[in-house]
């Protein structure tokens, strides 16, 4: 369970990006966080694994406080939190397998890391997960030879290699074409239920958020202004979140249900 209480993040003396967020996420639920660019979605996610240093507040994962931990303790906390990135953030010049095994860097020692001698169990797990998402045959290919959707699968598998207790996904589909991004969303959704893993997804596409997640949190100017079921996320909520800022045309014009019909098959 993830509990965020009164989270504040301020850069320098500027106006705070996050103004006292409270959020509670139960185990094995998929939560999407929607909001315009600059609403603080990305900052919030990065506060959880402390890639961004929160100014004040408390973040607890399964009862353990994450704010204020330092050094080795912080690294131990981070390895329990997997993260999937918008730009995939792969090690382009290394093989797919090395990218996947990099998810174990928090567990292995430096010699094992540099010599690439990972424990057999890690390699087994890597193959199992890669087979699950359909990229096992790329193990020895360089990561930059893969297509966008395949690269994001590598990113997802890398995060799962950490045996995470929480998965963060920062706009995981924003760099992908619509069809591939549907597949990645389905993958995240099904992995969450298979591994009973809580997943937080920052997402721009409200239609996808409504289709593939169980709960929607809306941010605007660093404050939470919507928290509820996808079914309750109506035109008013949309206007409250995006109104006067931008028009996410895919969210307003498309019927989420109709759009989800077509690619609903297992992508693997």
């Amino acid at each position: 369970m993830l509990e965020i209480t009164n989270l504040v993040k301020r850069y320098g003396h500027n106006e705070a990006v996050l103004k006292g967020l409270d959020l509670k996420v139960e185990d094995n639920s998929v939560v999407s966080i929607v909001g315009a660019s600059g609403a603080g979605k990305s900052t919030m996610l990065r506060c959880i694994n402390r890639l961004v240093e929160p100014t004040s507040g408390s973040i607890k994962l399964n009862g353990a406080e994450l704010v204020n931990v330092k050094g080795a303790e912080l690294r131990r906390a981070r390895r329990k939190i997997g993260m999937v990135f918008q730009g995939f953030n792969l090690l382009d010049r290394l093989t797919v397998m090395e990218n996947v095994l990099a998810g174990r860097l928090g567990y292995v020692n430096l010699y094992q890391a540099i010599s690439r001698r990972f424990p057999q169990a890690d390699i087994e797990r890597a193959f199992t997960l890669m087979e699950r998402v359909g990229i096992a045959h790329y193990a020895n290919k360089r990561a930059d030879e893969l297509s966008g959707g395949e690269r994001q699968r590598v990113g997802v598998v890398r995060a799962l290699m950490q045996e995470p207790e929480l998965l963060l996904a920062d706009e995981p589909t924003a760099s992908l074409d619509p069809r591939t991004s549907e597949q990645i969303m389905i993958l995240l959704q099904s992995l969450a239920s298979e591994l009973s893993l809580p997943v937080l997804i920052n997402i721009h596409n409200v239609a996808q958020a409504k289709t593939y997640t169980e709960r929607i949190v809306g941010l605007r100017h660093g404050k939470m202004i919507f928290d509820g079921l996808p079914a309750d996320f109506n035109k008013d909520a949309l206007d409250a979140i995006y109104g006067g800022i931008e028009a996410p045309d895919d969210a307003i014009t498309e019927q989420p249900g109709a759009q989800a019909e077509e690619p609903r098959h297992d992508p693997v």
Binding site: T95, M97, E98, R116, F118, Q120, I123, E124, A126, F127, T128, E131, A136, H137, A139, N140
Partner: peptide
């Protein structure tokens, strides 16, 4: 070679 029954190994190319 990826068949899940046998123990799978991997070495950096």
């Amino acid at each position: 070679s990826d068949s899940p029954s046998s123990p799978r190994t991997w070495k950096k190319p």
